[in-house]
């Protein structure tokens, strides 16, 4: 796709700002998988190439690192639970991606937090597509390169959070959320979902808090609580980008 409008450029910028710091985290993953869980280089690479959903990958090797191979049911279950939010993302992205078996199959593989977040934060369907594909590909290529580097030399770099990449990712997500907070309903959903996710984190398995927070949107959406009444006033369409 050729980049034409200012909107396209914005989508690409958001894709890079979210994708590059995320991709850098592959170093941590590669190091944890090989040094922590004792996976070999190829097993580590298969996880990044085929599973390709960071949270699940960290969960799998995290459980294997602490529990050993006999903990495999818990390791697989936590990876699957964490990955289940990708199914929700896929439902959200499905109309954006469009038709064609091959395109949808590749899109399915690239459906992760970051590609969905960047895409849904864009205005036109065209820039939503650009956001999805650029983010997905940047993270995929970058994540696999850094996984390889991490698996080979990870112990030399130490904890990459020392470089502030975790805060960069949080700020990038915040930048995507910011323009969507124009309505009272959206603000209420954001605050509630943020609280729900944080409060449930100590209680539930990793991955589940995000899914429960997603239910906040379902409840607000179904009841239209705090939503705009459908009066044809000029200000009612404001804030929906």
């Amino acid at each position: 796709m050729k980049i034409r409008s200012a909107e396209d450029t914005r989508a690409v910028r958001a894709a890079l700002a979210v994708g590059l710091p995320t991709a850098a985290y592959g170093i941590s993953f590669g190091a944890l998988a090989t040094l922590g869980a004792g996976l070999d280089l190829w097993q580590t690479m298969v996880l990044s190439l085929v599973m390709f959903t960071g949270g699940s990958q960290f969960a799998l090797v995290g459980v294997l690192a602490s529990g050993g191979l006999s903990a495999w049911p818990a390791a697989v279950a936590s990876a699957v639970l964490l990955g289940s939010r990708n199914a929700v993302y896929a439902i959200r992205m499905s109309p954006v991606i469009g038709r064609g078996f091959a395109r949808r199959a590749v899109a399915a593989h690239l459906t992760i937090d970051e590609s969905t977040a960047v895409s849904t934060a864009q205005g036109s369907i065209r820039s939503q597509r650009i956001g999805f594909w650029v983010t997905g590909l940047v993270v995929y290529v970058g994540w696999n390169l850094t996984t390889f580097v991490g698996a080979v030399i990870g112990d030399l770099l130490g904890d990459v959070s020392a470089y502030g990449l975790d805060a960069a990712a949080a700020a990038a997500f915040l930048g995507l959320l910011w323009p969507r907070l124009a309505t009272l309903q959206a603000q209420a959903v954001a605050v509630t979902a943020g609280f729900v996710a944080a409060l449930l984190t100590p209680a539930l398995m990793p991955g589940l808090p995000v899914l429960v927070a997603a239910l906040v949107a379902v409840v607000f959406g179904a009841t239209n609580w705090l939503g705009a009444t459908r009066r044809p006033s000029p200000s009612s369409s404001e804030g929906t980008p």
Partner: peptide, 21 residues
Amino acid sequence: RMVDLLTVALLAALISLQTFA
């Protein structure tokens, strides 16, 4: 409407976890 709010909820949840968890 649910799908639109879903984006807001997921982003807010991710920000919250990325910041506090």
